[in-house]
Amino acid sequence: MKSRSLTAALFASPWTVSFILFWTFPLLYSFWMGFTDYQLLSRHAPQFVGFDNYRALLGDRDFIASLKNTFIFVGGTIPVTTVVSLVLALLVNREFRGRGFFRSAYFLPWVTSMVVVALIFTNLFERGGYVAMLAQMVGFEPPVNGFLYDRGTALYAIMAMDIWMAVGYYMLIFLAGLKAIPDELYEAAEIAGASSWRQFTSITLPMLRPVALFILVINSIKSFQVFVEIFVMTKGKFDTSTVVYFIYETGLQTQFKFGYASAAAYVLFVIIGVFSILQFALMRRRQAAW
């Protein structure tokens, strides 16, 4: 029995080690750094500065702007992504010829590397590019210098790209949710003479609620961390800097202010934490209600 415990501990050790070395330690380490003036280039040892970094962050307009942009990003992409992916799921849920093909095709953007997607859209968003041409066709005057070189459109252009990339993925999750709805419910509704729309609103939507909340949680965790597309497309210019981009710029570029950047990371950590807990609480309450 003893030896079995030992083997179990041994088998579990890759995770134990990884959890301590790459999760617990970094989290504690950056928590500590957030209270110091640690800077890589400086010759003196890091000194404890209390809440100075956090106070400075509140007065740093770059940080405030990146926080604002992150919220716009999260708040703007999540509802659209959720609705569009649900529509797509409904579109490919019924039986028809080529269903598998369409499903896979819609999913393709998700398996493509974000860097490549960002490169492609950098071109598509250029002045005179395809998106500008499409915009003109529907009577919208595109910004003269291209969508990414305009403060009014840059962030939204990137958000649109992100939605494009993500809908196929969430569509799959919705499909799994749709499959889990028992057919009997629809059959009963059919017999009762409910219209398709009525069936949708009183059966499909309520039954999909847990899936939708799940999507909400994972999508917000992911969206709060948006970085690659900003790095490739705008380098944070034109009001597109996000918190993770801010962390990268202050912590890992010219300045190497580890202390300051770590404090910013913790602010983000707490925000995501609060959001996730809220969403979980919401999910639990809803489930209890049923």
């Binding site: 890589l40 280039l41 890992l252 570029q253 010219t254 190497f256």
Partner: peptide, 10 residues
């Protein structure tokens, strides 16, 4: 390169 020099010196 700049990053590498900073790390090198640090």
């Amino acid at each position: 390169g700049h990053e590498k020099i900073v790390i090198g010196f640090a």
